[in-house]
Design a protein around this nucleic acid. Structure first.
Lengths: 118, 118
DNA sequence: CCGCTATATCGACAGCTGTCAATATCGACT
DNA sequence: AGTCGATATTGACAGCTGTCGATATAGCGG
């Protein structure tokens, strides 16, 4: 079902699909979807980005601030931010010359709930 | 610190290192460690394996049962199980000819706690 | 000891991924 | 219009990853 979505397939789609991992065996398609979401954050640079943004005021941050902190080229940071957006973890809002990325509320929690065994 | 461990660096090591993502920005090394753990489960086949095992009696399962369900060659399944073991999600116990993989209690929850924002 | 079954390891290979340098785009300000 | 600063996109490339077939290992039953 979720594979029938024409485009992005956000975290929440993947998370809405099924019970926690430990409750019942994951089907093939559900596993694909969930893996896509997990792959999106399973990278050191992207984890730091999400963390930096999530820990910021209003859970959003300007790209200019992020590039300085990450010891990576600007195009690389931009690339990672895009990956996180496509996966549904972040949203982008351009204000003037600057781009602000904000955490999608509940996106991390949705993932978290799938992993819990208790 | 965690990078100073000579060997495996299990999920729990990575999870013990730091506060939830959204609490405070992740450091470079912490991000590396956490990414390693996440990469280990961020794969459809491995998610299904963990799920199948976690949902089984006593949270353990025989390899022979798993290979049938996954539509993958036996060497491939064996490979994925090794990855999950090295990451600290599973333990192996050989009983006779058969190998049983069991979920390490709390390993998934440790990861889950890091993602939560509430 | 021999074969059989279950599992692990090895080597190879296609495809994906993270990174960068170069370049494009877009908005603000003269 | 022209420039400048911030961000995105493109193209290229090395390195990693998932998969397989072939083979090795190990335990059991004859």
């Amino acid at each position: 079902m979720s594979t029938a979505t024409l485009l992005p397939l956000t975290v929440k789609d993947a998370a809405a699909c099924c019970a926690p991992l430990a409750r019942e065996p994951l089907g093939a398609e559900q596993a694909e979807d969930l893996a896509r979401s997990l792959k999106a954050i399973a990278d050191p640079a992207r984890l730091r980005l999400v963390s930096l943004i999530a820990a910021s005021e209003g859970q959003e941050a300007c790209v200019c601030d992020l590039t300085d902190l990450l010891d990576l080229g600007q195009p690389t940071v931009s690339h990672h931010l895009k990956v996180l957006m496509d996966a549904g973890f972040l949203t982008r809002s351009k204000r003037g010359t600057w781009a602000y990325y904000a955490l999608v509320p509940g996106s991390l929690d949705a993932l978290s709930r799938l992993l819990v065994t208790t």
